[in-house]
Nucleic acid binder design. Structure first.
Lengths: 147, 147
DNA sequence: TATTGTTATACTCTATAACTATA
DNA sequence: TATAGTTATAGAGTATAACAATA
């Protein structure tokens, strides 16, 4: 088989496999805290300021019913509060609690640890180049913040 | 929030998102042919020589029941045959048909097209460096061939 | 009428466990 | 007893559609 004929050698295919693996490794580290990878984008978006649920859905790039589910789970962890918006009673503003801020910092630490594990075989220059290139692919391809 | 405090900026997180996106793009191209990304590793492994189902499961890194399902689907596409091994009647040797070879070549072409779409904003040198770095992460992390 | 959030439902992907037929 | 393949089932993850409350 010619190299040109290979599927598994393409970036599209490898990126899929590596992404699955990377998410799994990160999920393993988050699990003891009751968190999953998709929660992290929510925690991070809310750290800046409280947001409505549909705002979160659009920013993260998932359907609204998924946000309901994620917020239910984070609420059970005391990571956030749903506060009815007095100006528009249909909306709920989602506020991070002190516990939520703490979980966000923990998640950030675990993500960095996962990176160290994944990138251990790379030089600092290679790791930096990888971050830059992945960021460029994401922005050109219109990949949303998280999930 | 300090940059060090970010989850969504880590390679672990971005790789997860990008992998999901890349797999989705590739799946969109494969769909008209009745194929899905996970079928491609099977087609490629069988192109070299016929293999038993458990051999495929180990090589791809999925559980045997998943292989049964993938082979059922590929058999419906006339891409392969299950041939009972006369030496050990428990085993079935999976052989690619001419149609299967054709589908494999089609999949390879579509994967290359997906790569061109994903990597369009990179220079040739950046794309090459990316392939090399992703390959190294995969081999160090023990990522299997496909799925 | 349109929008916010919610529920019900379904589909994909993957894994575990129990089963069968052979060895 | 152990192995190859299969089936049944269950759990994440995501999406669509219908709905209640509010605008």
């Amino acid at each position: 088989m010619k190299a040109e004929d290979s599927v598994t050698g393409t970036v599209a295919f490898q990126l899929g496999k590596l992404g699955q693996m990377a998410t799994g490794r990160f999920a393993d580290r988050l699990a003891p805290y009751g968190l999953r990878p998709r929660h992290c984008a929510v925690l991070e978006l809310l750290a800046a300021r409280a947001k409505a649920q549909l705002e979160l859905a659009r920013a993260i790039g998932v359907t609204p019913s998924v946000v309901v589910d994620m917020l239910d789970e984070l609420e059970k962890l005391d990571a956030l509060r749903r506060v009815r918006d007095t100006a528009d009673r249909r909306r709920q503003l989602i506020e991070l609690t002190a516990e939520g801020q703490k979980l966000r910092r923990t998640a950030a630490r675990l993500a960095r640890e996962t990176d160290e594990e994944l990138l251990g075989s790379l030089t600092a220059e290679e790791a930096t180049a990888l971050r830059r290139v992945l960021g460029r692919i994401a922005s050109v391809s219109g990949v949303p913040a998280g999930g």
